[in-house]
Simulated scan of single mutants.
Amino acid sequence: MTRRELARWARRPVQVAVALVFPVMLLLMFGYLVGGGRDVRGDYVDYLVPGMLALTMAFGLEGTMLAVTQDLNKGVIDRFRAMPMADGAVLVGRSAADILQSALVLAVLVGVGHALGWRAHGGPGGLLGALGLLLLFRFAMLWAGIHLALLAGRPELVQAVQILVWPVGFLSNAFAAPDSMPGWLGTLVRWNPMSHTATAVRDLVGGPGGESGHVLPAVLWPLGLLAVFLPLALRRFRGLSR
């Protein structure tokens, strides 16, 4: 199933290119056009890049969600059920392919960030730990998206569901420190789970805005999402054959 999804990359090079270019455009836009880093101590690029890495892992879920709903509507899933494969192999294979693409996106962004002057001051170990947290975050968001796609059932509804990700992404500390915001908004941003991931990544790479104590929450809340949405998605998928 994973090889099947990876084979789509060769047939849809534009889609892969957009997935790689879009986060780079966001990084350049916020770094040079919009950026300013209100109340950010230190180099703003060192603050921005980890936030952009976290934000990118929250976006782009619609590709996987569309693939799931298209398979459902084209009858492909019914054909797979007639084959000797484990329940949910289609979903697991699709999520594995998404994680591989997400790892490629992270590699591109790290390279662009390095070209902009960003450095991982925490060393190779800190950088690898940060990338692991980001991929765990992506994996959790991915299964939440898969479950919502199975509930939606139709490709045209996926875009509406994807919009729900935007408040999670932008109501975070990806671009600015919560101290620069109004009190109520800063509190909301601090409680945003994605802010924990961004802060933990900054801490691991030794950048401004990093605070110790956020690594554990950045591990626990994606695991909590997985504990809820992964079984729900598999259960929903099995129920489609009844």
Score class of each variant (00 low, 15 high):
A10H: 13
R11A: 13
R12P: 05
P13N: 08
V14Q: 12
Q15L: 12
L20S: 07
V21Y: 04
V21E: 11
V24K: 02
M25C: 14
L26R: 11
F30K: 06
L33G: 10
R41N: 13
P50L: 05
T56A: 15
E62N: 13
D71V: 03
G75S: 07
V76N: 13
D78P: 11
A82Y: 02
A82L: 09
M83K: 10
G88T: 01
V92S: 12
A96H: 10
A97L: 03
L106Y: 01
A107F: 02
L109W: 07
V112L: 02
G113M: 00
A115W: 08
G117T: 09
R119P: 02
G132D: 14
L133Q: 06
L136V: 03
L142Y: 06
W143A: 08
A144H: 12
H147C: 08
L150Y: 00
L150V: 00
P155Q: 09
A160H: 10
Q162T: 15
I163M: 09
L164C: 12
V165S: 09
V168Y: 06
G169S: 03
L171T: 13
A174H: 08
A177M: 11
P178C: 04
G183M: 00
L185W: 10
W191P: 08
S195L: 03
T199C: 04
A200N: 09
V205K: 07
G210S: 07
S212Y: 00
H214W: 15
A218I: 08
L220I: 10
L220H: 05
P222N: 03
L225H: 06
L230G: 10
L230K: 11
A233N: 09
L234T: 05
G239I: 01
S241A: 15
S241P: 00
R242N: 14
